[in-house]
Simulated assay, not measured.
Amino acid sequence: MSRTRTHLLALLLASVTVVAGACGGPAGSSTAASTSAPTSPDASTTSIAPDATPSAAAVADDGESPASPVVVARTAAAVEVFAAPGDATPVQTLPATTEFGSARALLVESAVDGWLEVLLPTRPNGSTGWIRLDGMDLHTVDHEVVVDLTARTLTVLDAGVVVLETPIAVGSDESPTPTGRFSVVDKLDTGAADGPYGPFAFGLSGHSDVITEFAGGDGQIGIHGTNDPSSIGQAVSHGCVRVPNDVAATLNDLLPLGTPVTIL
Rank of each mutant, 00 (worst) to 15 (best):
T31D: 07
V162W: 08
L133V: 11
G126C: 14
T212K: 01
G180C: 02
G135P: 13
P196Y: 02
T93F: 09
A105N: 00
V161A: 15
T177G: 04
T98E: 10
E174I: 14
G222W: 06
P26N: 12
D173N: 11
A56Q: 01
D134S: 13
V59P: 01
C240I: 07
A88K: 13
V185T: 05
A215C: 08
P54D: 01
V161T: 15
G25T: 08
T4W: 13
A20Q: 13
T155G: 03
L255S: 04
L255N: 07
P196W: 00
D194E: 15
T226G: 08
V147T: 08
G25D: 04
G225Y: 12
G171V: 05
W130M: 12
P196M: 02
S15G: 14
A67H: 09
V16T: 06
V72K: 00
T177S: 01
E99Q: 13
V91H: 14
T150G: 08
P38A: 02
I211N: 02
D113I: 01
I232W: 00
R3T: 15
V185P: 03
L149C: 12
S65A: 12
L9I: 15
D87F: 12
V72I: 07
G219Q: 02
D62Y: 09
G217H: 04
T155R: 04
T166P: 05
A32Y: 05
A49E: 09
S29N: 11
L9N: 12
T17Y: 14
P244F: 12
A235H: 11
A57K: 05
V16Y: 07
S175H: 11
F200N: 07
T97P: 03
V247M: 08
T35W: 08
V70K: 03
I263T: 06
E99M: 09
A76S: 01
D209T: 05
S102V: 09
T46R: 08
S34H: 12
A52H: 05
A14C: 13
L13P: 00
L116T: 08
A52L: 04
T190A: 10
